[in-house]
Write a protein that binds this DNA or RNA. Structure first.
Lengths: 263, 263
DNA sequence: CGATTGTTTGACGGGTCTCAAACTAAGTGG
DNA sequence: CCACTTAGTTTGAGACCCGTCAAACAATCG
């Protein structure tokens, strides 16, 4: 009785295990979840505000953003999701969508039926808890997003976003400069940060001129991680990325506490 | 075997039942939770960033805000909690606090031990699900808060906040003007909205002069709900306040869908 | 009644927005 | 592989929303 070696949901399992401990049975149950893959073109909405979800969307490849709009049509992206993230696990318990989701680049989504997710959560308390925990970590990200948009200027906002994306994408900031793919336009960045594209461009120029970070050719080039983190006031604790995935931080204090709630 | 008629946790049960259906046994288990009451003075922090929580904090009376600070010391309040809310139910599954919490006015908190909350969730799937759902709804509020701070001007932000607080406090906007207690200073409002106290004051004056809303003597006076909701682009759907508590919206589509996940 | 906290108003400066246009990179079809 | 088209980036000039600093005023509390 070994785990299936290959499954498209392996990255989902890996994400869950960044923050939750699962038994062998639970791992198997995750990998055995049914799914339906779909391809979503860049700039295409695949969840619309008001939809009642019947499945959750896992990002196998690509970038996804959830957003709302004001009456002028200005868009605010409230969360971004990278490879390995489940966009809307929360719809399992609150199926009515109060935001829209869009593929920021060409993206592959695996739709996992709520019925199967519910069954897995019902059968395995550890899975229910892991799902709950993922939702809570999502809200920690939102919390930081509010901080970013509410109380930091354009330069800090950009720096903070780059730091967060680097860590969440699994890149390990070391002393040396490094590069990671980030095929996001300045328009999309503006929508994430509550700024205008023009101002994003100028601020980006400032960071480039100061040799902190550069965005070009669909990639972010971290020139000086320490200064970037300083400018963005970045502390990775809130990402809760203990475990093997990324080592942006020291092991969290929570690690020593009871992790198993539902049993 | 009837429910205890009186318990300090009755309002907690009422909040849960706004969005989740509980069995008789589950209701009893909620009311039987142990707790320890504390009084927190205005402007006093009772959770500090970095704390590892061992209990969750229920607001029996008062106002609470969670916040972060940037290096200049500017504070951003990311969520507010009113009578009947659990401030940090999420710490049951992620005990490390990534924000601080402060009483915005003199407040009575009931501390409920994580061990008891865990036991209740483990014993009753319906409770586990209700807790999970509360966390998800919290993140929906955060989502809207990002929208507010990111893509609305000062006037809209204020209007939106007043609408949200009115609905969450259980006031039922009708055609006629109405008043509800809101003992929050303009400094605190500024920290919620990502503005300065001076600008909050001027914006408040604008709304007062236009006979939309007034804030004075620790109370909000809604002069024209329709215009307020229009200015704030307010749609109460995201509050998920179906059920008896408040009727800011029509019954949600989610109401017809399966509500029981973990059984 | 005095002390403290919170509100209101003014003058000025700055960060960000708006509008507009030139420039560059990426994608397409012949 | 080259024109062509489209999408995205860069830069400039001016305006506006909001921030900053400062001081007077009002409300609350002991």
């Amino acid at each position: 009785m070994t785990l299936p070696v290959q499954s498209s949901l392996t990255p989902f399992l890996r994400t869950l295990e960044l923050r939750s401990r699962l038994t062998e049975d639970e791992r198997r149950a995750i990998l055995a979840l049914p799914f339906h893959p779909i391809h979503v073109a860049a700039n295409q909405d695949f969840i619309r505000q008001g939809d009642v979800a019947t499945h959750s969307c896992f990002v196998l490849e690509g970038f996804v953003g959830t957003f709302g709009q004001n009456k002028r049509g200005d868009r605010q992206i409230t969360s971004v999701f990278v490879k390995g993230d489940m966009v809307d696990l929360m719809t399992v318990v609150v199926p009515e969508c109060v935001w829209s989701a869009q593929a920021l680049i060409a993206t592959t989504i695996l739709q996992v039926p709520h019925s199967a997710l519910r069954q897995a959560a019902a059968d395995f308390p550890g899975i229910a808890e892991a799902f709950w925990r993922e939702c809570v970590i999502n809200s920690a990200l939102l919390n930081e997003w509010v901080m970013n948009v509410g109380r930091r200027d354009a330069r800090s906002r950009l720096a903070h976003l780059f730091c967060e994306i680097a860590c969440r994408s699994g890149y390990q900031p070391a002393g040396a400069p490094f590069t990671f793919p980030f095929p996001i336009t300045q328009f999309q960045l503006a929508d994430m940060l509550g700024l205008t594209p023009v101002h994003v461009n100028r601020t980006l120029k400032g960071l480039r001129d100061d040799r902190v970070v550069d965005l070009a050719h669909r990639a972010v080039q971290i020139l000086n991680w320490d200064r970037l983190a300083q400018v963005g006031e970045f502390d990775a604790t809130y990402l809760q990325l203990r475990g093997g995935g990324s080592a942006c931080q020291t092991p969290s204090a929570a690690e020593q506490t009871q992790m198993w709630v539902l049993q």
